[in-house]
Design a protein around this nucleic acid. Structure first.
Length: 111
DNA sequence: GTAATGACCTTGG
DNA sequence: ACCAAGGCCATTA
């Protein structure tokens, strides 16, 4: 676990996600220049729970704004609970106004 | 070292 | 418009 090139990058971006905002795996992957490697972002999230600096993986959802990885949290409700705490309403495991709450790293970090 | 899997996305029929 | 399959990179067994 010495080389965290892609992982560390993903963790950094995810940690930089503002509260009440959500991003998608593809967005992070594309920001890192690995558009086709969206799966790696998801995989990185899997290791996120193993990382020391806890990563707000609950702010990361799939392209449809669906809480795909909610099942990987402590409990399937953890992700939704955390999102609701961030004032992000979730309906049917789906982020409300996802496109509005969507936070693009290239935009958020660029501005 | 090889094979299979994975919290995805894109493209083709 | 909908359904299906492939591709990508890294980790783990």
């Amino acid at each position: 676990m010495a080389d965290k090139d892609f992982f560390d990058q993903v963790y950094q971006v995810v940690r930089l996600i503002p509260k009440g905002r959500v991003t998608s795996y593809g967005a992070i992957a594309a920001y890192l220049g690995a558009k086709g490697s969206a799966r790696l972002v998801g995989y990185a999230m899997n290791a996120a729970g193993s990382q020391k600096p806890k990563v707000p993986a609950h702010r990361v959802v799939n392209r449809n704004g669906l809480l795909s990885g909610k099942h990987h949290f402590a409990t399937p409700f953890t992700m939704q609970e955390l999102l609701e705490k961030e004032k992000v309403k979730v309906d049917n495991d789906r982020v409300v106004d996802f496109k509005t709450k969507f936070w693009d790293p290239s935009i958020g970090l660029a501005l």
